[in-house]
Write a protein that binds this DNA or RNA. Structure first.
Lengths: 129, 129
DNA sequence: CCCAAACATTACGTTAACGTTATGTTTATA
DNA sequence: TATAAACATAACGTTAACGTAATGTTTGGG
């Protein structure tokens, strides 16, 4: 609950490994943990929240590239109306993409069911009893 | 229509590349084409049928590993019952996975809509005209 | 016999997202 | 102060399904 944690606490609470955190830092997905001089890195609650949001988006099969395109909009706190409207545009676009993916999966699901039914009917006819 | 074709005819009729044929040979998905001494390979109609069956299963999004688990039954078991039962198991498993993904996407869709609505309400209150 | 296609054989490349050593340093605690 | 646990860094490894040179050999037609 502190604002300063090391990588061990961060990764445990986020459910990722240190390797993942460092990889995300290297590709600019999360900000690098601050360090005092040359030693270890310290991370904030906001970075933890970012990691959790990244995990959410990963579950939706977004690539890290795609996540990088949208992640900031979840954490910028737009002071003005224009900023919020920009966020809205991105979120709506995101919604459209998710709807598209849902349609694609449902289409594939239908094809799968069709195939399964055909297999079942074939087996029924061949082996009545 | 002969029983002896070289790789060019095989790949053209199967709709794959020579690289694909050799890769499939290397992983034991199709039998290696016979050769006279040291020269070129000759393939049979059965290998062509195998390639076409592989393509069918790939359209069902089976991995080559999964295909290798079932492909032999199409050509060894004359009734095809065993093969179809095995394929059925794999297809049902895929169906369950797809259903799970659809649920995840719908959950995320709901969260997104919630987010969007909150933004819209904020903008309405702040800027009612 | 000649030559262009077709074929064969290596072997490195590609993409994404980290895992896994290997080795050395820092921190916290007794 | 000693030392174990935690941390840092570098670099090679992994998965899937082939693509893409690069180089050499075989085949069929004229």
């Amino acid at each position: 609950m502190n604002g300063r944690m090391r990588i061990g606490e961060l990764t445990e609470r986020a459910g990722v490994t240190p390797r993942t955190v460092r990889y995300y830092e290297s590709i600019g997905l999360i900000p690098p943990g601050e360090r005092e001089g040359q030693g270890q890195h310290y991370y904030t609650e906001e970075t933890l929240a970012r990691l959790r949001k990244i995990n959410q988006l990963k579950k939706l099969r977004l690539s890290l590239d795609e996540i990088r395109d949208v992640i900031d909009f979840y954490f910028i706190d737009p002071s003005g109306v224009q900023a919020k409207q920009k966020v809205l545009v991105v979120l709506r676009q995101h919604l459209a993409e998710v709807d598209q993916k849902i349609r694609e999966y449902q289409q594939f699901r239908a094809e799968l069911e069709d195939h399964i039914e055909r297999f079942e009917r074939w087996l029924e006819e061949k082996k009545p009893r």
